[in-house]
Design a protein around this nucleic acid. Structure first.
Lengths: 106, 106
DNA sequence: TTAATACGATACCAAATGGTATCACAATGG
DNA sequence: CCATTGTGATACCATTTGGTATCGTATTAA
């Protein structure tokens, strides 16, 4: 019953998780590496990663005893889709974002 | 301490609040009118409106004994700004997101 | 084989969240 | 004036959330 849109919005509602997303945008990381970036235990980071995974925002690849956490940009699509409902209202911020995306896609 | 970005993300994390935002996008409404749209008490709707107001997503105009709740589209700017952070990182993953966004456009 | 490493899972806790019920109060209309 | 309407505020409740501590397990290294 919890939609992908809801899971994605929920995942992004926490500042730590948004930080994790930004960090993973630069570089894939194991849980231990991510934990080094925050002032909390590995268990807490793991919980955040689970929520991010439920939201479709990251994927995990098992490599030996390590788990490589990787950003899944497509997970943000439901959120951006939700915002597109407002095309009639705003000042073309989304249009700018779209343009930037298309520009870099070339 | 709680940033505007955090307040906005938090406000949008709840499905009822996202529904309220969509409803207010089409028409300004009083609390009573909004309550008619949901299966919950006026007090619950009022709480959601407070969170939305904290997030800068709506404004309230007092008119007589009524309070007109109005969408504040600019309140979404911090959220979109957060997403724009990825402009500098997205490379080949970008094509996929671009596709997703354009699929929604049709 | 044995020890260290990287992680999962669970129990537990305080605080936040989403809801109700209820009372108070200002504005409106007869 | 007085009843009604529209709302705010608060106390209260169950559940979720974000965190720790702890133990178990699989993989790697010595």
């Amino acid at each position: 019953m919890t939609s992908q849109t809801q899971n994605a919005f929920r995942a992004l509602a926490d500042p730590t998780r948004r930080d994790i997303v930004h960090i993973l945008a630069r570089q894939d990381m194991t849980i231990a590496q991510l934990t080094d970036q925050f002032d909390m235990t590995r268990a807490a980071v793991k919980k955040h990663l689970t929520v991010l995974s439920d939201g479709g925002l990251i994927t995990v690849e098992t490599r030996g005893r390590e788990r490589i956490n990787r950003l899944e940009p497509m997970g943000m699509a439901p959120v951006l889709d939700w915002f597109s409902y407002f095309d009639q209202f705003w000042d073309d911020r989304l249009a700018n974002l779209k343009e930037a995306i298309e520009r870099k896609a070339k």
